[in-house]
Computed example of a mutant assay.
Amino acid sequence: MNKSSLIIIIFFTLVSFSCSKDNNDEPIFIDDVSLLTNYIYKTYNVSNSPNTVIDSTNFMISDNKIISSSGLNLETLSEKTSNYSYLNGKIDKIQSFSNGTLTRIQSFGYNTNEELTEYLIENINTNDASSSFERHTFTHTTDTIFSSWTRSNDGITFDEQVSDFKIVLVENNNRTYLETYSYLNDDTQYEISTYEGSFNILNESKYLILNNGNEVLSFENNYTTSNAVNYYNRILSNTYSRKNLMLLYHLQPSAINNINAKSISGYRLDTYESTWGNSFAEFEISTVPNNDNINVFTNFKTIISGNLFSRFSQEFIFN
């Protein structure tokens, strides 16, 4: 697979989960001085000078949780909206629409201990109203959470196996280990993550287990953070709970310039480096604060051979 296809930004559909009331499950937001009302995500056409917006999605926030979203592709004029519903304080369902037509339903199931046990996705074909389904199940044990990813054409018989996972969470529900077996590729990979303090990601090292049992480092991602609040993580932690955010972290798009760690670090990312592809790309993260030094606009840029390759931004609106 060529490099450009791997690092093209895939629009990250913000999925939401339950809200935890356990103080040990959430970062301490020392700069929480304003009421957050909106989060805006944009992607850009970097071929134009100045850059022009391709997609803009506005997530409406209430009590730090997502309640709905509305987006517009400015090149195709396609409109996308989503509604978020909660049950007993936990995310229950997300319904997504394209130009007013229902296209996706995400549902969440929990056990009696209020642990996430199922994440179900129904993708609806608007041409013939048929559906395809993807299911992620979670089995919680003392020290490991086992997850299985399967697919179905009828939502009843899930007979297509995609991947199996082993997930280890430690203090503060930080995910330190992820093991993935792919049925398609018939291979096993694992990832080790390290953190600074309670919630700040420092390193993600990804390994491949060869047929002879040897383990090879595929690549690693390295980060530095500031002491400023990461409001993106704040939104997700209140909508998901930090534990569920970590259980579903591996389901985000794998493109390296999506910079997935922006979703799990309790404090704002300052720098990001990746050894994928022999470090052929550079990444720039720049934040413009308001008068209270709360980050309100952050640019994420990928640069290859001195040229801007891709760009997206996050904006946070306070009342």
Rank of each mutant, 00 (worst) to 15 (best):
G277P: 02
G100Q: 04
Y84S: 05
V15C: 03
T57L: 13
N307G: 10
A255P: 05
S148M: 11
S147E: 02
F97A: 07
M1H: 13
I54R: 01
E282S: 13
F11W: 13
S205L: 07
S16C: 10
S70P: 06
T188C: 03
S198P: 09
D128P: 06
F309A: 09
G71R: 01
F133N: 04
I10N: 15
N278I: 08
N99I: 04
N153I: 14
Q252P: 01
E273T: 15
F59Q: 02
M1E: 15
L251R: 10
T144K: 10
R104E: 12
S49L: 00
S56E: 15
N88W: 05
N290R: 07
Y223C: 03
S305M: 11
E273I: 14
F219Y: 15
K206P: 04
I303G: 02
N83D: 11
F146M: 07
T275L: 03
E114R: 06
V33R: 15
M60W: 12
N172G: 06
T176C: 06
Y181S: 02
L208V: 12
N38R: 12
N319V: 13
E115W: 01
I54V: 13
I10K: 14
F309R: 06
E75C: 08
F133A: 05
I304P: 00
Y41F: 13
N38T: 11
L116D: 00
G155E: 07
E171R: 12
F158H: 04
S20A: 02
E196S: 14
A281F: 12
K90F: 03
S98V: 14
L116V: 00
F300K: 04
Y183Q: 03
S198Q: 15
V229A: 14
I303D: 03
I30E: 15
Q161C: 11
L14F: 08
S68K: 09
S226E: 03
N307W: 05
S62M: 13
K301T: 05
S107Q: 11
V46E: 00
E273A: 15
Y86E: 01
E171F: 08
N238Y: 01
Q252M: 14
L269A: 04
T81D: 15
N153W: 10
E115M: 04
N185G: 09
I303R: 05
P50Y: 00
D32A: 09
F199D: 10
L74E: 11
R175S: 06
L120T: 06
S313W: 02
Y39H: 09
S68V: 03
T141Y: 06
T275K: 03
T225Y: 08
Y232L: 12
I40F: 06
T76Q: 08
T194M: 04
N2W: 12
F165N: 00
F309H: 11
N125Q: 09
E75Q: 15
S82H: 05
E220V: 07
R242A: 00
D63I: 07
Q106C: 08
K301E: 11
N227S: 15
N127H: 12
I264Y: 00
N23G: 09
D31H: 15
R135G: 02
R234G: 02
S274Y: 03
V46D: 00
A261W: 02
V296W: 01
A261Q: 10
P50G: 01
N99F: 05
S198D: 14
E284T: 10
L184M: 11
N230P: 02
F280R: 13
T275R: 04
I167W: 00
N257T: 09
N2C: 12
I294D: 10
F59M: 04
F12T: 13
S313Y: 03
P50R: 00
S68L: 02
T224R: 03
